[in-house]
Design a binder for these strands. Structure first.
Lengths: 184, 184
DNA sequence: GGTTTTATTGAACAGTTGTTTAATAAAAAG
DNA sequence: CTTTTTATTAAACAACTGTTCAATAAAACC
């Protein structure tokens, strides 16, 4: 099962066309026709690969998710002493990753973005946190539930952050997270 | 500034048409043309009021949000065996409300639903929780952040719940929430 | 009840959508 | 290099979109 070169080419062309158009206008003012025109790809070909523009963006967003994983796993390095013992230091990197790609997260968190983008982020953070999850003999806890709880709590902060157009620094978010966790 | 009777009538007609169509097919297979045909309303009139179908559903969803508020504020009755350590009396009402309207929350949490629905729910829960928020002299905590954190944590559980098509009971969700809060 | 204001209508518009078809061109396989 | 396989293309399709316009009808106002 090789990947046909033609497929790779057209997908790349469509990806790039979308990125170019996103610099000029908003995601849902962009039409399929327009993307295909810029990518020099037949409209039928677009539909056979993606079906809708959202799926094209989603494919790009998956690349960004890869950066989230590596960012999360990369320990300390960029952190300036800050940390308390209460906070899992890896968590820290999530906010920095988002700050780095805030241009795209503005789209992800915009009102008419489909939930599918949100879910990609949510599922990824859930997965990352799940590995670090230490349940001290709490047998009755539904792992899926507590992971969803913790992951989405962090995304909640990001939503708040995005609503203020990412004015705060990533470090501020970390600081707040530490304090919130200490309240409980 | 009175509300013109004609406006009320057309909006009601459009609302009802949407609800009827939602029983037959999914939200994004429904066209504006179709709604207007069923509502006996001119397409131009639809556009002058809503612009897109999502806004029509949003208006309906706001009605459901009113139920969330009254549900949350109404004193708790439905439980037979009341174990105080296992019950979080305020949040259980949120879970019951969602269970009651799960038919609509399936739409709200579907992959291609716009984030705007999510935000309506999130903002409402945030608001409800904010009133009950007791910060014991934690001056440095950003109220907006901790509210977003807590509200979205609960919504996170609901996402997980919806991904299992609301198979669990509202009581199960609440039980889990209590246990999760005790871990911290 | 008569007048004024304003929401709704119908019709038309160019443009987009999503799908399908046979023809073509490009890659893979031998 | 030749054959086979398969992705892409162009063209055409009915349907839907979003917008605009003057004409009409229905409320609001006094």
């Amino acid at each position: 099962m090789k990947t046909d070169l033609r497929v790779v080419k057209t997908k790349e062309a469509l990806q790039e066309a979308l990125l170019i158009l996103l610099k000029e206008k908003t995601l849902n003012s962009i039409s399929v026709t327009e993307i295909c025109l810029k990518a020099k790809v037949n409209r039928g070909t677009f539909y056979s690969h993606y079906g809708q523009i959202e799926n094209l963006f989603e494919e790009y967003f998956k690349e960004i998710m890869k950066d989230l994983i590596t960012s999360y796993q990369e320990p300390y390095k960029h952190v300036q002493i800050l940390i308390t013992s209460e906070l899992n230091p890896s968590t820290i990197r999530i906010f920095h990753h988002i700050e780095k790609y805030k241009k795209f997260y503005r789209i992800v968190f915009s009102k008419n973005a489909p939930l599918s983008y949100y879910y990609l982020l949510f599922d990824q953070i859930k997965e990352l946190l799940k590995n670090d999850l230490a349940l001290n003999g709490e047998k009755e806890i539904d792992i899926a539930m507590i992971s969803a709880y913790q992951a989405n709590a962090i995304v909640g902060m990001v939503i708040e952050w995005s609503k203020q157009d990412f004015q705060h620094s990533a470090n501020y978010l970390n600081q707040q997270l530490v304090r919130i966790l200490n309240v409980n």
